[in-house]
Design a protein around this nucleic acid. Sequence first.
DNA 1: GTGGTCTAGACCACC
DNA 2: GTGGTCTAGACCACA
Lengths: 120, 120, 120, 120
Amino acid sequence: MNGYLDKSRPVGPQIGELLCVAVVQGEYAPGQRLPSVRELAVDLGVNPNTVQHALESLGEQGILYSVRGSGWYVQEDRTRAREILTRLRREKTAEFFRTMQFLGLPTEETKAFVKEWEHE
Amino acid sequence: MNGYLDKSRPVGPQIGELLCVAVVQGEYAPGQRLPSVRELAVDLGVNPNTVQHALESLGEQGILYSVRGSGWYVQEDRTRAREILTRLRREKTAEFFRTMQFLGLPTEETKAFVKEWEHE
Amino acid sequence: MNGYLDKSRPVGPQIGELLCVAVVQGEYAPGQRLPSVRELAVDLGVNPNTVQHALESLGEQGILYSVRGSGWYVQEDRTRAREILTRLRREKTAEFFRTMQFLGLPTEETKAFVKEWEHE
Amino acid sequence: MNGYLDKSRPVGPQIGELLCVAVVQGEYAPGQRLPSVRELAVDLGVNPNTVQHALESLGEQGILYSVRGSGWYVQEDRTRAREILTRLRREKTAEFFRTMQFLGLPTEETKAFVKEWEHE
DNA sequence: GTGGTCTAGACCACC
DNA sequence: GTGGTCTAGACCACA
């Protein structure tokens, strides 16, 4: 696993996002089997149930599929994964602009604010 | 009240942010009395308890102060309000960059993504 | 609650089906608040988590929606609920015919078999 | 082998049902030797262990018998096989009616629903 | 009080 | 061993 989870927001969705990115970036190839639920849980430092939940969600979204007694696999067609990743980025960005507007910064000023941002 | 609350995230903090912005932008002048808790609650469409908690929080932060039996007033010195607003904007932006990084977009690419953003 | 749950198959989906039927048949009217997760859990004799899971699924399917701190409500538009119920019936029936075919009974013979069926 | 296995339900029992039907319909005659476990496994696309378990189960039910070092044979008396097949059909049908009742369709309406069913 | 999230651990079916 | 389901119980945010 690359980075670690952010404890300040629900980890379930984070795991979904993490794996979605991993699939899109080819870290897990189409058709490849993922590490087991229990392995992922240990790697990520969370409960197996939480991982299971996240995987099921990705299954419903058409990114992964499971084989009873065998494991979780990456769907051959990664179109859905790409779509969902794009949608996530758009949603997070839209939410960011909304929040900044809420904090008194209109869209254009927020863009300027971001442009000047220095790596923390 | 200017805009409306975002139902997709907790309303309590939002009310605090809203009032903080209102104070900094002079919508409520130093020393001015705010509308009553009940009025604010009706305007915002939330439970009076939620407004009450938000006002108390702003009181603890030195942005407002309360007078028993009279209401809530804006502190004469708005320095704290400005500081807090600045901090909030920085935090939200830092969090945004972190989230986008999580979604596979490094800082520079996120900046480019934001630059191209079209008003929804 | 009308009947009881069948212990021989997963209860989670059963709860979803139960509530879906209840919504379609108007047992819970559009806009109405459902009993709390904990109440439903007691009524059905299952763990609150299981109920929560089922409700979330119905939420994703557009049959219910939740309000934090308040409860679960029936969507005003019951179109989705009706669609899903119809789909469920079709799926179960198709699966039944497939199974019977597997057991050596072609579709027409299965129809005859069902026609002669006596209430147990 | 006639049809293929249904991936949406456990394959173990399906293999048992498949062979039971094959015996009743004379596809495998009384006293005849069945293909080897490995052959069956390849034909069905499943793990040899799964086939082995299914065969043992049919052995316990008095449909087949095994000869060490030789293979599995069909019992001369097919009465048990016929009984079991009949029981399976009844069980599946009863379960189907129960499920449809759960989905809001009483027995008579389910019969009507089945009567109108069009081959998919 | 409400829903929402997470942990811990058990048991099942399947391979 | 694998995934899948369920229970029990804790803690949080919100009204």
